[in-house]
Amino acid sequence: MIQSMTGYGKAVCELPNKKISIEIKSLNSKQLDLNTRLPNLYREKEIEVRSLLGKQLSRGKIDLSFYVEAATSDKITKINQQVIANYHAQLKSIATDLGLEQSTDYLKVIMPLPDTVKVELAELDEQEWKAITETLRAAIADIIDFRRREGAALEADIKERIQLIGELLTEVPKYETQRIEKIKTRIRENLEELGQNNKIDENRFEQEIIFYLEKLDVTEEKVRLSNHLEYFMETIDSKEPVGKKLGFITQEIGREINTLGSKANDADLQKIVIRMKDELEKIKEQILNVL
């Protein structure tokens, strides 16, 4: 069963002091295009996260977001005692040299000065990350399930259109015989208009008609188109990602339909070809979203 590249997955991790919601969104893309938005605390694990997403989701424009609701901040604020002590010693020395009162509130003066407070990031707890990884896997499983549901709808629509092209192909033979008669009649009428009808060698005329019709013969195109349609149906049932492969097959189907149209030389056959092209264009649009 095929998968769609469009999808959405979500999972929530409940930790003792925080709640983390992980969301994954996916759109169609020719290649794997990953965009991760991780809190600073988890940045060191970005390569691991991207690797896991790449292996599981294969292709598409993937957006991953972590939303954290925490009771405490991941940033730890510490007072830099050594810096404050140095500031105090210097200010006290200056006050003594200038004969200022010693009752000055030094802390009020010192705390706005640079480097009196330092902010450090909390270290990532490996047990916490293990729980987050399991939640990430759950979110990936959720989006894969979404992709499969979307893929089932795509597959049903695409198969229906491929079958319709096959049905249109079976209508081609009934127009081929009458096409030959139409061509013969048209050529004779043209000769009559030129006043050459009585001068025709019937044997030579038949030979020329056969030669002309050989150039318009669509037997090979019908066989190749039928084979491509059959191969398409076999491929779409594969368990592996087949989006690109199906795209290549539709290109081959399109070539045969175009050749069939160029050789048709008949209004009824052209109508069939146009309907085939219409269905094929709709299939191509759908395949752009197939993984």
Rank of each mutant, 00 (worst) to 15 (best):
Q102I: 13
N86K: 11
A156N: 15
I62W: 15
D145T: 08
E48C: 04
V119S: 07
A131P: 05
E126D: 12
A122R: 15
D145N: 04
L107T: 13
N40L: 14
V172H: 14
G99Y: 02
T135I: 05
Q102R: 12
E176V: 14
L168R: 06
Q163F: 11
Q81Y: 02
D142Y: 07
A70L: 08
S65K: 07
L124E: 11
K61V: 02
A152N: 08
K61I: 09
T177S: 14
L91S: 03
L53D: 00
L124Y: 08
R147I: 12
E167I: 13
V109K: 10
G99K: 01
D125C: 14
E134W: 04
I162G: 00
G54D: 12
E176H: 09
N40E: 13
R59Y: 01
I183P: 13
K92E: 08
I47Y: 07
L124K: 07
V83Y: 04
T135N: 04
E150D: 02
F146T: 13
L113A: 03
G54R: 03
Q56W: 12
P112T: 03
Q163I: 05
Y87E: 01
D142N: 09
E134D: 12
K130G: 10
Q178K: 12
I144M: 06
S65A: 05
E134H: 12
Q163K: 11
L154G: 08
G99F: 13
S73R: 13
E160I: 15
I132A: 12
A122F: 03
D142V: 02
D115I: 13
H88P: 03
E69W: 08
K108T: 06
K130R: 15
E176P: 08
L169M: 11
K130M: 09
T104G: 12
E69P: 13
Y42E: 07
L91D: 10
D63S: 02
T72P: 06
R147V: 08
E155W: 00
Q82N: 12
L121G: 08
D142I: 04
K55E: 14
Q102N: 14
A70H: 13
R43P: 01
L121T: 06
D97I: 13
D157I: 03
K108F: 15
S93G: 01
I158F: 06
D145P: 08
D105T: 07
R161H: 09
R59K: 07
Q56G: 11
T133Q: 12
L64W: 05
A89K: 11
I183R: 06
T77C: 06
N80T: 02
T170L: 15
S73G: 06
T177V: 11
V68A: 15
I94D: 05
E181C: 05
P114N: 01
E123Q: 14
I143Q: 14
R43H: 08
G99T: 04
I183N: 10
A153L: 05
A139T: 00
V68T: 04
V109E: 15
T116N: 05
I144Y: 11
R179I: 02
K184P: 06
L52D: 07
K130L: 09
E46M: 04
N86W: 15
D63H: 09
R161F: 02
E167D: 05
V49N: 00
E167A: 11
V117I: 14
